[in-house]
Amino acid sequence: MAYWTDVGSSTIKRLHLNTSKEELLMNGCIADSTPDGIALDIHSRLLFYTDTGKKVIGVTSLDISYHATLISKGLDQPRAIAADPGRGYIYWSDWGLQSSIKKARMDGSGQQVVVNTGIGHWPNGLTLDAYGQVLYWCDARADSINSVDLVLLRTTVVHRKKGSHFFGITHLGDDLFFSDWTKR
């Protein structure tokens, strides 16, 4: 399956890769809804999402039988989200007045700031190296890709290129893959 958000139609969808059948998982046509980031926990069969318009973080089961708002306080413009099922956490970026990266337990409790300094106001994509306990994010305003060691809470600029607009990021093994809107 491939999962994605469509901010234009305020929906979360998936595609069965073997049949090319598209399914609507969540229709956010409620006023001000803008589902943005998603993260899967394939073991628990849960999809976590951010909704920038409604300023919430929610969860839905992949069979759509369960849906809940996990976090509705302390959010301004939640964007990207990553899940760490092994340790029981979700991480998200927030573009708000005080841009930050935060974490909470997968039930929404125990909200904590992970990084709130050195962020250029547009922290986009997140990807988690759960084994190395490193969280990476794109910062479109700072033209950089950054990381934070989740044990030492030490941040590092991994890559910077002036004029870039880094947006999405993921990793496989030791490699990072990212998108850049200016380079298309």
Score class of each variant (00 low, 15 high):
Phe166Leu: 08
His159Phe: 14
Ala140Met: 06
Val148Gln: 05
Ala83Thr: 09
Val157His: 03
Met106Glu: 09
Tyr131Ala: 12
His121Asp: 12
Gly58Ala: 04
Pro35Phe: 13
Thr127Asp: 14
Ser61Arg: 07
Arg160Pro: 11
Ser61Lys: 03
Gln111Ile: 12
Ser164Glu: 03
Tyr131Ile: 07
Arg45Asn: 14
Gln111Arg: 07
Ser93Gln: 01
Gly132Met: 15
Lys161Ala: 03
Ala140Val: 02
Asp84Tyr: 12
Arg45Val: 08
Thr50Gln: 08
Ser100Thr: 14
Gln98Glu: 09
Ile71Lys: 08
Ser33Arg: 07
Ser144Arg: 10
His67Met: 10
Leu128Gln: 02
Arg79Ser: 03
Lys162Thr: 06
Lys54Tyr: 13
Ala130Pro: 02
Phe48Ile: 12
Asp32His: 04
Tyr91Lys: 02
Thr34Gln: 12
Ala82Gln: 08
Ser144Gly: 11
Tyr89Gln: 02
Val113Glu: 02
Ser109Gly: 10
Arg160Glu: 13
Asn146Gly: 00
Gly163Ala: 01
Gly125Trp: 03
Trp122Gly: 09
Trp95Asn: 00
Asp36Trp: 11
Tyr91Thr: 02
Thr117Ala: 01
Arg141Tyr: 01
Phe48Gln: 03
Gln112Met: 10
Ser93Pro: 13
Tyr66Ser: 10
Tyr91Phe: 06
Ser61Gly: 09
Ser164Gly: 00
Asp94Gly: 15
Ser93Tyr: 09
Gly163Pro: 12
Ser33Tyr: 04
Val114His: 05
Asp36Ile: 03
Ser99Val: 05
Gly118Cys: 03
Ser164Phe: 08
Pro35Val: 04
Trp137Asp: 04
Asp149Trp: 08
Trp95Val: 03
Lys102Ser: 13
Gln77Ala: 14
